[in-house]
Amino acid sequence: MTPANHDLLRNPVKVWDPFVRIFHWSLVGCVLLNQFVLEAGETAHQWAGYIACALVLARVAWGFVGSRHARFADFFPTPGRLSAHLKAVRQGRHPQYLGHNPVAALMMLGLMLLILLLGGSGWLQGTDAFFGEEWLMELHEVLANGLLLAAGLHAAAALVMGRLERVGLVRAMITGVKQSY
């Protein structure tokens, strides 16, 4: 998708459907619970991880059949899209997109991959073949820390880019509507 004309966002534009918004905030909840509230390795921690993986898998399916801006075809970060977006930003321009910009799309896909890798490494720790394997526990911890770092960067970027682009990005993930201010 090409960047939206700035005037297109002067009026409210419905962008994120209820599924995308519920997915997003449910995944945030699972990650925060597992990182800061639930005890690692306990049943609740495992279930929160499984729910997070199920959410990601549902989001992947929604990326093919969901609403316009939820579909991967709308925002998939191809090399051409990434290059054009980064070139514009380097030139001091901040093109607006109705859906994800290419860098945000890359981050979103990376976050979802980290969730699935965490789920897989956590599940493997409970199997007979890998139970008690130190390297796997360390990998799981590194992935968890990487997820937390990436999620923090994602949240900070949404705030900063929202200010630079003059668009309520966080508000849009709550209401589903994007608009310039």
Rank of each mutant, 00 (worst) to 15 (best):
M1C: 08
T2H: 15
P3V: 15
D7Q: 14
R10V: 09
N11Y: 04
K14H: 07
P18H: 08
F19V: 08
F19M: 03
R21T: 07
I22Y: 15
S26C: 15
S26V: 13
G29V: 14
V31A: 03
L32Q: 10
L33F: 12
N34P: 01
Q35G: 00
F36G: 03
V37W: 08
V37T: 03
L38G: 06
E39D: 04
A40W: 05
G41V: 02
T43G: 00
H45F: 08
W47I: 05
W47V: 08
G49P: 14
I51V: 15
I51A: 13
A52R: 11
V56K: 09
A58V: 07
R59M: 03
V60T: 04
A61W: 01
W62Y: 08
F64E: 06
F64A: 13
V65Y: 02
V65G: 08
V65E: 00
G66F: 11
R68A: 11
A70P: 09
A70C: 09
R71N: 08
F72Q: 05
A73S: 14
A73N: 07
D74I: 13
P77A: 04
P79V: 03
P79Y: 13
S83Y: 10
L86M: 10
R90C: 04
Q91N: 06
Q91Y: 02
G92S: 03
G92H: 08
R93S: 10
P95M: 05
P95V: 14
P95T: 11
H100K: 12
V103I: 11
A104V: 03
A104Q: 15
A105T: 06
L106H: 06
M112T: 10
L113I: 07
L113G: 13
L114M: 12
L116R: 15
L118P: 02
W123I: 02
L124V: 00
G126E: 00
G132H: 06
E134V: 11
E134I: 02
E134P: 10
W135A: 14
E138N: 13
V142Y: 01
L147H: 06
L149K: 07
A151P: 06
A151H: 05
G152R: 14
G152D: 07
H154D: 04
A155K: 11
A155D: 00
A156Y: 00
V160I: 14
M161R: 12
G162D: 09
G162Y: 02
R166W: 08
R171T: 13
T175E: 01
G176T: 02
G176V: 05
Q179W: 00
S180T: 14
Y181L: 07
Y181V: 10
